[in-house]
């Protein structure tokens, strides 16, 4: 492979009890690449993301992030996880902590930074997502868009090798979506590797290097945004794309 691979998923399988939701997924992401993952509800997109940092325990297959095998037994999972930024549909900010507190918690408890050092890092990351003046605000005093940007800052502060986004804008009012997408675009421009589950086709067209279509626990097809949205090879992809474009 010519380019350095940051994320490599090999023959990944995951079951919840009897239900197999990932049925052998292969996927690669090169450094600074932005890939979109689309697919119908229940196809296993969130499950796939959660396997990347082993929030779900895959039953077979491998995940390698930035040269380290996440799925290896006995790996220092907590140190690995902080290298894998994750952003959730419902933000999941800690409601009892300020924006600053949300960002500094893992800096202090996982990276063992001093309070001063952690505050410094958090301030600069919050500035990066345009929320420096909200550092002292609690989540319930922030708009959805602001909360999601704090959540992005919380992940970014740990200097991840890759960022995983699980429908980062689908819980937002339409007028707030662009603030979050702007931050993601800035991340892309600074070379962050990103895997994004989202149906924001406009953003995918303008920013994604690649779009993968997932259905029923497998990646059915992948290609450029142009190709997947305009002229997919597979009928199922075509039907799905037509559906999300209304």
């Amino acid at each position: 492979m010519a380019e350095e691979s940051i994320l490599s998923i090999e023959k990944l399988r995951l079951s919840y009890g009897e239900l197999e939701v990932l049925k052998g997924v292969d996927f690669d992401l090169a450094k600074s690449e932005l890939a979109f993952l689309i697919g119908p509800s229940g196809s296993g997109k969130s499950s796939l993301l959660r396997c990347c940092n082993r929030l779900e325990e895959p039953s077979a297959g491998r995940v390698i992030v930035d040269g380290e095998e996440v799925t290896a037994p006995g790996v220092n999972l907590n140190q690995l996880r902080r290298r894998i930024g994750m952003v959730f549909q419902s933000f999941n900010l800690y409601p009892h902590l300020t924006a600053l507190g949300n960002v500094t918690l893992a800096l202090r408890k996982v990276l063992k930074k001093s309070r001063v050092e952690a505050d410094d890092i958090a301030c600069s990351v919050l500035e990066r997502v345009g929320l420096k003046d909200k550092a002292g605000s609690y989540p319930n005093a922030l708009s959805g868009g602001q909360q999601q940007r704090v959540a992005i800052a919380r992940a970014l502060a740990l200097e991840p090798a890759i960022m995983l986004f699980d429908e980062p804008t689908s819980a937002l009012d339409p007028e707030l979506v662009n603030d979050v997408l702007a931050v993601m675009r800035e991340l892309r421009e600074t070379g962050m590797t990103m895997l994004v589950v989202s149906h924001e086709m406009g953003f995918a067209r303008s920013a994604a290097d690649r779009v993968a279509f997932m259905e029923d626990g497998v990646i059915v097809e992948q290609g450029s945004a142009e190709q997947i949205f305009g002229d997919p090879n597979c009928d199922r992809t075509r039907a799905f794309v037509r559906q999300i474009a209304h």
Binding site: L55, R81, R82, M86, F88, S90, Y94, L105, V110, R154
Partner: peptide
């Protein structure tokens, strides 16, 4: 909310840390 656990663990907090610093205060 389960999402609080996911968020905490995804940033590298251990189970005990997530419990003490994130879940318990709430």
């Amino acid at each position: 909310d389960q999402g609080q656990w996911l968020a905490a663990r995804s940033t590298g907090l251990g189970f005990g840390q997530a419990l003490i610093f994130v879940v318990l205060p709430q």
